[in-house]
Design a binder for these strands. Sequence first.
DNA 1: ATGGAAGTTTAGCATTGGCTAAACCTATTG
DNA 2: CAATAGGTTTAGCCAATGCTAAACTTCCAT
Lengths: 146, 146
Amino acid sequence: MPQRAKKAGTAKIRSAAFRRIRADHSSELAEDYVELIADLIDEKGEARGSEVAMRLGVANATVVKTLKRLQDSGLVTQEPYRSIFLTGDGWKMAEDGRRKHKIVEGFLLALGISEETARIDSEGIEHHVSEETLRAMARFLARKGS
Amino acid sequence: MPQRAKKAGTAKIRSAAFRRIRADHSSELAEDYVELIADLIDEKGEARGSEVAMRLGVANATVVKTLKRLQDSGLVTQEPYRSIFLTGDGWKMAEDGRRKHKIVEGFLLALGISEETARIDSEGIEHHVSEETLRAMARFLARKGS
DNA sequence: ATGGAAGTTTAGCATTGGCTAAACCTATTG
DNA sequence: CAATAGGTTTAGCCAATGCTAAACTTCCAT
Ligand SMILES: [Mn+2]
Ligand SMILES: [Mn+2]
Ligand SMILES: [Mn+2]
Ligand SMILES: [Mn+2]
């Protein structure tokens, strides 16, 4: 066994966290899209790509390309020049996103964070909390939020 | 003004959260790399690319390519077939990462989360907490952690 | 001293998620 | 009912982050 000998035991375990992060990242964008589309449908009756682009702060063309991927994943349906619809799976993901989002944002507020910051931080944190952490946040919220 | 009229007022404000998320994501990988390299140097005296790859759970070639970018950003220095060093900026970023990471992980533990989950969730959350939220977590920690 | 096993880099590919500019529809309005 | 403003898509570009297979170094053991 020439050169340095590695223990390599702990490393595999340690890498689990980073693997989860990479998995989270690959679903994150989809979650934000479907949640946003659900909001638009509820608020305005329809979801237009340009409105999605505006709220996300990206170019129209970016949204078009991403929606094509979401369509391939079976989360949305659309026809050219028409508004966007969610599939059953799309609605399910949107509802789950809303649930997580609400817990995380409510938790941050209960912790004493300002509304502005809670809104911004929760948008990122929501994608990286396990169910266990979510439960703990909900518990804290129930106890505190009389 | 044909077709639908957009209000376009609230959208720009709302998009700020998503812009921050995208910014967070682009610094996230660099933060994890330098923190990991700092840990390896402290633990083993040197940081080898293959060890970084193992702990992150990615291929060696991926680490080589990423380290090249980090070198261009002035965070690490390296020579072919040799171990990796951090620049001053690299150490600064690593220290700041450790600080945040410790607060977030400690906070989750104080909230009653299991060690395993706290370790995993904090690895993702750490990159999406503002200083305001970090302060609130530290406060909670100080109050609770007798 | 040196052969070769093991560690490291290079080459080449794929996907995601951004962008701008140009082409293309749609629907309001005159 | 037709022109056209304005919303939408296409085309083509780029950077980041992953992978595998092949080439290349290093350094230990003989
Ligand atoms: Mn959300
Ligand atoms: Mn989000
Ligand atoms: Mn960290
Ligand atoms: Mn991390």
